[in-house]
Design a protein around this nucleic acid. Structure first.
Lengths: 225, 225
DNA sequence: CATATATCGTTAAAGATTGTTAAAGTGAAT
DNA sequence: ATTCACTTTAACAATCTTTAACGATATATG
């Protein structure tokens, strides 16, 4: 669930936005001035801030600066009635990610929100996919196969093949399927190349008798755990 | 010179657009179906994509999704005969930047193209896009890579390459794509130059074991976070 | 069962790509 | 003209993938 901080002094617009965003499955906290919003930001975590520029007590730009002293990366979108370029620039300089001019279309706001979240999604979270094979662990992303304190840095091909074997652990990994997936083409030479890689993987895995790569004649290989 | 990818199955309209855009000093590559367009996108660098929604083999929406897996930021404009709102939203969700309904005025298309490019340009200029890589932060605009109190001022090329790697974090950044985007030309010497820069970036990133640049033999590099 | 044939196991060499360092080029600023 | 920062080119080492060669094993066939 994406959490949104919304700072908007116009109660009608604020509630309208909150409901709209809720319908789009964003959890939104609404604050009707900059001071309260800042206080709210300190107390909780937000994935995105939408700030009205013109607000009593503390305006949107000032609020954005304060938020930036706390968090350097949280995306900020300004709502502004003023379309003056200078204002916009002032906002951008302290680290806004986008702005939208009132009156605006809700869908357009949503689009911009999604565009921003998409842009930052890359560096937020990433689930490292790790397989366990007996006493081995295999980190697919890092291409590292570990067994106790010894660890092998696998090459791309070794890693891709081991991944396919793990995906099909205890069942047959069809030769043609593997070839087409990793080598693009299942010709004779690539098939021989694959055999070479099977040999290499077997060497890596020889420390653990509980794990082995069996050949299924004429069909492919089976990783037994 | 701004490079445009145009995917349009109607040959007349396609050529017409191409000539019009050429007259407005855009270099346009025309593809008459989605498959070819995707292939073209892989092989070269484009600043903007204009995609017809209804095309044989691979439609515009699907194409846009595929393009987004390669490049998360390149602007996409849809050409659509359907004015249905659902379609439009579907397009926006996968990251379109605008759409235009057939039949349309050439000048209107141009206006939208320019609006988008202007927006992208101001984005680039004013929005401090900051990536977080483990305990590093990388400010693209300032070209500064920080890790705790040590900070490195990157050169232009170092910064451009690191940005592309971040854009494609945890997936392969194709060598050719990077070369065409940063060096314009993917010849042998530029490829070697790129290798030199990879070495430099690795040195900067060596303080954090959770972040590393892996080579994918024959294809490119992968920034693992 | 014996033998032919295809498939697989393994090792080493060849060929291609990449890693790294240093020197040479380039262009802007002084 | 000289310095300086940056980029490219060169050179050599290291690594990765494919190909070749030969032996081993499995399956099919008479």
């Amino acid at each position: 669930m994406t959490k949104v901080l919304l700072a908007e002094d116009d109660e009608n617009l604020g509630e309208l936005l909150r409901n709209y965003l809720k319908a789009k499955s964003f959890e939104t906290d609404l604050f009707d001035n900059g001071e309260k919003a800042l206080e709210g930001f300190r107390k909780s975590h937000y994935d995105l801030c939408i700030l009205d520029v013109m607000m009593p007590v503390k305006d949107g730009f000032t609020l954005a600066q304060d938020i930036r002293t706390i968090n350097k990366v949280v995306p900020i979108i300004f709502l502004t009635a003023r379309s003056m370029k200078d204002d916009v620039l002032e906002g951008f300089k302290i680290g806004a990610d986008d702005y939208i001019t009132k009156p605006f279309n809700m869908d357009e706001l949503l689009f911009r929100i999604e565009a921003i979240l998409r842009r930052i999604k890359t560096d937020v979270q990433f689930v490292p996919q790790v397989y366990t094979l007996g006493k081995y662990t295999f980190d697919i992303q890092k291409q590292i196969l570990q067994c106790g304190e010894t660890s092998y840095k696998l090459t791309t091909k070794e890693s891709e093949l081991l991944k396919l074997l793990c995906d099909n652990a205890n069942q047959v990994l069809e030769r043609n399927y593997a070839l087409k997936t990793i080598w693009e083409d299942d010709n004779y030479f690539n098939a021989r190349s694959m055999d070479v890689y099977i040999t290499k993987l077997r060497k890596y895995l020889k420390d653990e008798p509980a794990v082995e790569i069996l050949n299924v004649h004429g069909r492919g290989f089976k990783l037994v755990v």
